[in-house]
Amino acid sequence: MTGETYLSANEVGKTYGDVTALSDVSLDVPADAVTGLIGPNGSGKTTLLRVLLGLERPTGGTVEYGGPDAVRRLGYLPQRPTFRPGFTVRETIGFYADLVDDDPDRLLERVGLGDVADRPVDGLSGGMTRLLGIAQALAGDPPVVVLDEPASGLDPAMSELIFDVVASIADEGRAVALSSHELALVERTADRLAVLESGAVVTVDTPQALRERTGGPLHETFTSLLERESAVVTATEVGDA
């Protein structure tokens, strides 16, 4: 980790009508590191990633980019990447590469899809589609790469491969932010973890420091953190009543 912050959210809030998706969230995404977002479904992980990407406008707070100048500052892998049918893998990545003057073959080799370049995208497995999505996210060599659930719904071997690729992306000096429910893989890959609950960041720390809080594996820490958070919320509600 170089410690340089490429992307930061400062007291970000996001509401949809009466529903609060994010509340006063501050988070730094440093270079040369993987920042993992973990939390239960509906805790605001995807919304936070979309706000960091600029796809959602926050209702409060700011998001600042502090990375180097680049043709494309932010790379993005959506939760369920879907590509236009009727094209081969190479033609598909060629489209994105053309937009940023990149080499499609380099991008395919980077994620290990060089051998299936002529296969139609509609014939790819879920894991290969995800790898193609990562290749797309790397087009133009963006300093920040944001990955939303990069391994959800994949078999263990493919999930492991995806996380190996993710780790190597950060090793190239990029700032990587990802959300995931694959706690074992996140624990192994992430340098920092932010635990989200009900749209707020409960804590941010290294996986090792989080583990030491309970002395067990990360999922135990995760569960105890969320239970504690729920207890605080319940106590506050009782106190208010």
Partner: peptide, 12 residues
Amino acid sequence: RGELDVLETYPL
């Protein structure tokens, strides 16, 4: 497909 979201991260 979510393609418009992805393309927003490109200089297009």
